[in-house]
Design a protein around this nucleic acid. Structure first.
Length: 443
RNA sequence: GCGAUCGUAGCUCAGUUGGUUAGAGCGCCGGUUUGUGGUACCGGAGGUCGGGGGUUCGAGACCCCUCGGUCGCCCCA
């Protein structure tokens, strides 16, 4: 057979394995746990949709649609797009499945997303997000619940330290338009002093000048009119309800009146959980209220809020990855023992212990391997054991070794697992106590 | 899309102004010890020097192109 040059992976894609995979898995599992506490139903969405789902919802204006989507024609000639986000697809599903009858709906999803961007750390062309949406709820309590969910998720992941919730309001449609006009007027007046990039932004996306990184833009951006002066009474009231709710839930936040969203369908609440630990990709979880989106997809005006968070970025912030551990190592010696090991292994696995057979290489090496994977105990099966019907059971923590019937092994393993869990629990408690003590000192 | 920087073994890297068969540590496999986790010593496997082209008697090194990583910018749904 002719050999070909081994194909390289596609730029910006990753093979997630080992420690990275464990981090990834931990993020997803924690998300699934917390989402249940808040009553969010999981949904599975298609990975591709008609291009119109994203093009229409995003407004077909920006680079986003024209340059950063994976769009292609399928064999039937339809234009399809690999999903670059969850929100538009979920909104489409809400409309095409008649989910209005269930409103308000609390939905959560996670999976791969695709954007044609220049890869950097924490930024890939195929990446993965967690997503939470509340559709059909126009009240501030929905924003609060969603933010509490996000806050608790970050805390459960143990990465809330050094991550701050930045919060802003974009007001309702009239507030937003009035503010936008005032901003354009302000920037127009100082156009000559703006950076080249920001002069362009003035045409395309003036709100973005507010968070420009150009030094020369800062004075102009910082002196720009605040949204607060343009908020309608209702919008002001709405924002107050959100912040009061957050305070009541014990969610820490800071006001960032420079925080904006690029797209027109955003209303009221906008937020980002930001860290300085990931370089230029500091946003770890972001979202807002998008009351205008579902209407732009051809549905009835439907209020909605949501957020999304990058799984890779969350994973990078985790302290350390807990690895999948093997509880029981089985070391057979000789062919007959290997067969026996297979039956012992399945018996142990049916008893809900993770078990692994180490049959290759020197015996010494295998024992070392058993130790390395963190097994609580090892079972040794050789000719003697085959004859006697018992196995050697070795506690790898103490080195203590005894001959046992298989039924007794199960019992021993329960004991070992229990005391192991207890140890972990106690050291976890110690850590918590230390943290509490430090908090006390800080005050 | 723009700018910068890097790419040598599974991993981290060394490789003198271009000069014979490309090295080290860790890891892996084996031996001293074919029934016990550590250490030591000995041995072994593993490399299209990211890829292609060029300059040269000679290229891992120099030049061009290309692919990929990283860090910014743009964008960020």
């Amino acid at each position: 057979m002719a050999k070909i040059q081994t194909p390289q992976p596609v730029r910006g894609t990753q093979d997630i394995f080992g420690e990275d995979q464990e981090r990834f898995q931990h993020v997803v599992e924690t998300f699934e746990q917390v989402r249940r506490l808040y009553g969010f139903k999981g949904v599975q969405m298609p990975v591709f949709e008609p291009t119109a789902v994203f093009a229409r919802s995003l407004g077909e204006t920006t680079d986003v649609v024209s340059k950063e989507m994976y769009s292609f024609e399928d064999r039937g000639g339809d234009s399809l797009t690999l999903r670059p986000e969850f929100t538009a697809g979920i909104s489409r599903a809400f409309l095409t499945n008649g989910w209005q009858q269930h409103a308000p709906m609390k939905l959560s999803a996670h999976g791969p997303l695709f954007r044609y961007e220049r890869p950097q750390k924490g930024r890939y062309r195929q990446f993965h997000q967690l997503d939470a949406e509340i559709i059909g709820a126009g009240e501030a309590a929905a924003d609060v619940e969603l933010l509490c969910f996000a806050d608790q998720l970050l805390k459960e992941l143990g990465i809330a330290d050094g991550v701050t919730l930045q919060l802003n309001t974009l007001g309702d449609a009239e507030s937003r338009d009035a503010w936008r006009d005032a901003l354009v007027e302000h920037f127009q007046a100082h156009k000559a002093d703006l950076s080249k990039d920001s002069q362009d932004r003035l045409e395309r996306n003036p709100l973005r000048i507010l968070d420009s990184k150009e030094r020369q833009d800062r004075p102009i951006a910082d002196s720009a009119p605040e949204i607060d002066a343009y908020l309608s009474v209702e919008a002001k009231e709405f924002f107050a309800e959100v912040t009061e709710g957050l305070d009541a839930c014990g969610v820490a936040w800071t006001r960032n009146s420079r925080l904006v969203r690029g797209l027109d369908y955003y209303r009221h609440t906008a937020f980002e959980f930001v860290t300085d630990r990931l370089g230029a990709q500091g946003t770890v979880l972001a979202g807002g209220r998008y009351d205008g989106l579902i209407e732009s997809l051809g549905g009835a005006a439907t209020p909605a809020v949501g957020w999304a968070a990058g799984i890779e970025r969350l994973g990078m912030l985790l302290e350390d990855a807990s690895s999948d551990s093997v509880e029981l190592a089985i070391l057979p010696m000789g062919e007959d023992a290997t067969i026996k090991a297979l039956s012992v292994a399945s018996e142990m696995r049916r008893a809900k212990f993770s078990a692994e057979i180490f049959a290759r290489g020197k015996f010494k090496k295998r024992m070392a391997r058993a130790n390395q994977v963190g097994a609580l105990a090892a079972i040794i099966i050789g000719e003697d054991e085959l004859a006697s019907g018992k196995v050697q059971f070795k506690n790898l923590a103490t080195g203590e070794q005894t001959a046992l019937e298989l039924a007794d092994v199960v019992e021993k393993m329960w004991d070992l697992r229990f005391s192991d869990d207890l140890d972990n629990f106690e050291s976890h408690l110690d850590n918590l106590e230390q943290e509490v003590a430090q908090l006390g000192e800080g005050d």
